[in-house]
Design a protein around this nucleic acid. Sequence first.
RNA 1: GGAUUCUUAGCUCAGUUGGUUAGAGCACCUGCCUUACAAGCAGGGGGUCACAGGUUCGAGUCCUGUAGAGUCCACCA
Length: 853
Amino acid sequence: MLDTKYNHKNVEEGKYSYWMKKGYFLSGDKSKPPFSMILPPPNVTGKLHIGHAMDVSIQDIIARYKRMNGYDVLWLPGMDHAAIATEAKVVAKLKEQGINKYELGREGFLKKSWEWKEEYAQSIRQQWSKMGISLDYSKERFTLDEVSVKAVNHVFITLYEKGLIYKGKKIINWDPVAKTALSNEEVIYKDVEGAFYHIKYYIENEDKYLDVATTRPETLFGDTAVAVNPKDERYNYLIGKNVILPIVNKLIPIVGDEHADMEKGTGVVKITPAHDPNDFEVGNRHNLDRIVVINEDGTMNENALEFNKMDRFEAREKLVERLKKENLLIDIENIIHSVGHSERTNAIVEPYLSEQWFVKMAPLAKKVLENQKDKEKKVNFVPKNQEKILENWMNDCYDWCISRQLWWGIRIPAWYKDGKMKVQVESPGDGWIQDEDVLDTWFSSALWPFSTLGYPDNTELYKRYYPTNVLVTGYDIIFFWVARMIFQGLEFTNSRPFKECIIHGIVRDKTGRKMSKSLGNGIDPMDMIDEYGCDALRFFLTTNSSPGQDLRFDVEKVKSTWNFINKIWNASRFTLMNTENLKEINLSNLSFSDKWILTRLNDTIKAVTKNMDKYEFNNAGSELYSFIWNDFCDGYIEFSKFNIEKESTQSTLLYVLTNILKLLHPFMPFVTEEIYSNLNIKDAESIMISNYPKYDSNLVFTDTINLMKETREFITKVRTIKKDNNIKKDAKYEFISSNDEIKLLISNCLKLTNDNILKDNKDEYTKLEITSNTKSLKNNLIYYYKESMDEKNKLIEDLNKEKIRLENSILKREKLLSNPGYIKNAPSELIKLEKTKLENEKIAFLEIINKLK
RNA sequence: GGAUUCUUAGCUCAGUUGGUUAGAGCACCUGCCUUACAAGCAGGGGGUCACAGGUUCGAGUCCUGUAGAGUCCACCA
């Protein structure tokens, strides 16, 4: 028997290890159709946050739902080495211990990183178990394990041989703290305070100067030209002349280039080909030198003269001082402008000329765009509008910088000797030195849906589970990951990596702000589980926003979800207490209320299934919520109390409860398992492996729906009127009903006891008549009571109000029904319904007129 | 500049291919310790669906425009 109160800690204790022990999470039953899903691998950098909790909850709902529906579900877990993110953390940790990465050396550093990985992997698995998610751990992968590395090398070499990977010297985003290149996606633009420094660039042999504005004056040492627009009549006559580069005092040309925008700034722009992507292009057009002036660590180099070895920002200040002193500074104009920051180290990114490896994107992107046109082959996004985001990105994507100057990652399979290069896995022989760089972490994650299954080998796993069915992730990760999986999948497996891609929103704080470390507004899912239980957290996270929309985290809502579970708990207690002696579920000799709740159950099964199949868990959730609370608890359980000794009542109670538990199980695995295990009649040893409810037309009794709806409405009507008229418990009554079963039900609900049936003279009392006179029900309840003048007046007032309401409604409806367009176009059922309503309203209206007399 | 999401009750959100009187949770008011549950029960109040047009017999829902909020991309001399 269940405890008297829902205690989430007791309920959740031990269940996960029980499921694991039983092997319920394992895939591989060949007798069933396969269903596969790859878990987006979390980074081994820290704790799971509330966004992970939402992401895995959605996936577990799908996994459990599919499993209960007879699928062989493979939900494959794994983790990502997260190259730069992890390396930054390990470096920071070592620094605390007074150890420098470079002193430790590559080997030593990697050893420390693997230790870090083991520690965090363990903690992540622990958190997964707390979330109750049904992962197949026997297939767990890591982006740096052998299988993954093999796939990565294969893909790299193949793309290189196809000419889709190349090495080139370009301007890339440089992180001076991590000392590595970054892809564009890893750069976060933030608005910061800065300034336009207006500097005098004197024209050669003239006493005039050009006003050149820049936000990064320290790059001046790398200037190899200034540009003006050829159409700009203020300056175009100067093209071909030189200016004197301030401080450096060398001559650089004035070139004419479209890049110089006449509207912007002063119309004159300095050209620094080694430190700005646009300038790089200008440099190419005009054959300009590329002078690098900044070191890898963000300090200035020898080209910066006396500022050599100074940090770039200190150099900026000092340079400005000197310009001021030499009267070369015109003005400092304070501005707010957006500046690129490294996603992981938050360092200000330096555009930097450097030799790196790139993936040539255009041909790969084109393939994706083509494939998305084919309904049978495309990746179907849920919600659908997310497809556009992918297409936009594919339409104008630039080459992907994949080399990173890090140690923690998969090393690039390229070898060098005497100026020659070979791309292959093994060393070509003595004296060949492997490329020092590793690959962008997203290069390995891009292969995740198939590398985890054994690709490039044609393994059993790969054959059975690829392409995967569903991928679930947040919209914030479409470019980083989803897009790249799709083009790599198409290129290498000739297939979409997943048939459907479910995109969810992000979890925000209560006021709608993004959660972040700096704001300190993050929520630790483990704290929530501790306080309210995993089931409450999961149900909250998955049912409180529509697909693709963001979710505001509100503890109050988690709390009210807990209350909902407590309600289920108590309804289960009631059911268990009253069905202890039931031997079998026998659904015959059903009463109206039995038939009604079974019909409502089947309606709910139908609606929930439909929403589950569309991944609209919010709708499934609210269907379940209102069915369980309003119909089962507030309706059926109350009615059942009057017939509790009957076999049909007990059977119905247990049958409905069992189905409720199963419908809820994907959302609330723990509490449903606990209650299910306490049922004395059940179809499986664990709810996890029981069958999901199916719509059963034999248990649908359409005619009882209206009957019970009207009965419940009648009961509410009586209660309202009783309360409005202050009718006490001891008021006398007279009750006539067209149906004995309904009469019993209403009498019990309204507590109409035999003692109060009116026997004496009616004329001494005030009479209050309440009727339900609808198609299926004829009830007439008359209260007799003694009332004050005030009460009488209030009654008249209320009746008048109702009269006016009915008058208006009747007029409105008559107008609608006399509209020829409506009669012509509206569905006949609707018109019929409107007509019945009009009739009922007219009857009610006449009744009121009578009463007012 | 381009794309995209959103604006519905005091708050947070649902609202299906257009079709009953627009729903829920929380909050609020009233009455109840009724033997599953007071973390509950019963009853109630509260909305010009951002604004303006249009299409339609009928618009929260479709179209156009306006205002406001968010997000992404591009540009940021």
